[in-house]
Design a binder for these strands. Structure first.
Lengths: 341, 341
DNA sequence: AACATTACCGTAAACGTTTACAGTTACAAT
DNA sequence: ATTGTAACTGTAAACGTTTACGGTAATGTT
């Protein structure tokens, strides 16, 4: 593997000049640049990034911290992010965490060890951020949870308005004539801090506002963002609240699991029970029945967050908070039962 | 951020001794070890991995090259792999590639730039390996495609027997009374080199052996490993070959897309058309109908490949080729039509 | 002709590690 | 007391870069 020394030797210039060519510094003659570039090309030379990072800043590439098993949702985000990083000549590394890990503590560990120059959190719990994000010094972006209220100068966020999205979802179900609606997802034993909490609270808002018949103990089942969890929750929910006509699952994976749970309970979707999801993963458009959902612009989520981070890295811009639009996608999984009555 | 120098200063020992403690070298007194470990703990010190890698070998962590958008299948593999790496104190980075990228050329680029100490290919095309893998010097593992026939000393492979899996799948369909079977997936214009080719050829074997009525032009549709592609292919296939009673989709994502395509063509699964998938992704167990598939032990695939690489890295073991078992999983998506006749 | 300026280039230190080597002790054996 | 040995520890070079600094040659200015 060629090093900068080889390039220097082969081109007849010093490593200093070679380095200047690589980094597009001005003080290089046209002649030298041409010659050195030729050697670089012919040797297929690329700077060793360990050395570059060690020298430059002591910092490694940006790390994306992926939390939770909402992977089917995140997987395409990751690809999009990679693409943007690559376009800007940046590398990325990825760290996967359990859904119930403390992502901030994990990131702190990661920082002392690898000194990433930036962090992107894919999913996260605001409570953990509140507790310990102060220890993190590098620029970071929290994706999918709004950090506007957090007092951190180095933390941007890119999210959709989950509370509103959930409100919209419930309102959509109501507009289709549903009055007894069950909810699957999230849990009640944490403070408001994660995506699931916001969605849940958005839904509850509508119930309260419209004075609808909704009892948390009866009409709600906690669930993780997984098929299995959605399946189990749906079965339990149907036992507890047999009169509901619709279920709002706060994630598409939950919705998919729930549909199977409903079927296994001997009911039909959407004839007996309508199901509404959240996230807008690709499969909702191919499922039988197609699943009504709250679609987030995943691509936009990815691009915004990476671009924000890169800008802040390069130009020391200040952290910002973006809200990406969402959109209610009707689907066969929700039946309009208004006219029936 | 503390460096080894700080630890040396704070503990009163030299950086040499500190380094020896970190790396568990023998020549250190119990007293020094205790003292230094105490300082390391109190400072929350971790060696800067750029420096370590630069010094040690010039090599960065193992990189996983993920090819193609069979992500729903790969996503859980990635997590499992990360886990094993982490258990062994190793880092990983991930590179995502398009389904039609040349993963070997991409890896070569990656090698000159980042000098990973090892590579794991998640998916790949043997033809590319044949052409250019010779240029890669680090130990590598090819996951999901058998590289037994390749003449490379530094390339292990961990796969299931895709040809046999496809044979088993077709035989299963036949055992359920299907005689006119269509196939979706892969393409015919490449040499035998990728997973899809092997599955396709396995299926064709059975047709030939059993002298079944199968015409490539009529009963086969190429497809990528994606929902959309599977959807389109199914629609085209049903037009061309309206008399088939079953479809073998060479990937579960394709199968899921195909089912929607079948439904949109006005037919029912499995009453009119049975569908069999391949891969065994989690969702096949929750879909309505549950999808019959060829299940691969994804966890085993992940663990084997990482462990093989780590062993070879540590003990200079020779490359090996593992075949992981597969298993036919019956499902509601395949109807037994034998008794009908 | 003398000097200043410009344009370019090389040198060497530094980033945070690891490790071969050399050095220092302490202690046992003579 | 001297020497040998074992057990430990410090020193310094090296990994592949970047960059401040200083140097040189060419050109411009007086």
């Amino acid at each position: 593997m060629a090093t900068i020394k080889d390039i220097a030797r082969l081109s007849g210039y010093s490593i200093g000049t070679v380095s200047r060519v690589i980094n597009h510094h001005p003080d290089v003659s046209e002649k030298a640049r041409k010659a050195i570039e030729a050697v670089i090309a012919s040797e297929n030379y690329k700077p060793n990034s360990n050395a570059v990072q060690l020298k430059n800043t002591g910092y490694s590439p940006v790390t994306v911290v992926v939390k939770g098993s909402r992977n089917v949702f995140f997987e395409s985000i990751l690809e999009d992010m990679q693409k943007v990083f690559r376009e800007n000549g940046e590398e990325v590394s990825v760290a996967f965490l359990d859904e119930d890990a403390n992502e901030v503590e994990a990131a702190i560990q990661l920082c002392v060890q690898r000194r990433p120059k930036g962090l992107i959190f894919l999913g996260g719990n605001l409570n953990y951020f509140e507790e310990s994000f102060g220890k993190i010094e590098v620029p970071a972006v929290l994706v999918t949870v709004d950090a506007e209220e957090m007092p951190f100068e180095n933390l941007s966020s890119v999210t959709t308005d989950d509370t509103k999205g959930a409100r919209d979802a419930i309102e959509y179900l109501v507009s289709q004539g549903h009055e007894r609606i069950g909810i699957i997802g999230g849990s009640l034993d944490t403070d408001l801090g994660q995506i699931s909490d916001f969605r849940l609270s958005g839904a509850l808002e509508v119930f309260n506002r419209q004075k609808m018949n909704f009892d948390l103990d009866r009409d709600f089942e906690p669930s993780k963002f997984s098929l299995e969890s959605g399946y189990e929750a749906a079965r339990r929910l149907l036992k507890k609240a047999p009169d509901i006509t619709a279920i709002f699952a706060i994630g598409d994976m939950i919705a998919l699991g729930a549909i199977r749970g409903i079927v296994d309970s001997g009911k039909k979707v959407p004839d007996d029970i309508s199901v509404m999801g959240y996230d807008g993963i690709e499969y909702t458009r191919y499922a039988v029945p197609r699943i009504a959902t709250v679609r987030q612009d995943i691509h936009e989520l990815a691009v915004r967050s990476v671009e924000d981070l890169l800008w802040r890295l390069s130009y020391h811009r200040v952290a910002q908070h973006f809200i990406i639009d969402h959109e209610i996608i009707p689907g066969e999984s929700v039946k309009n039962i208004r006219e029936e009555k």
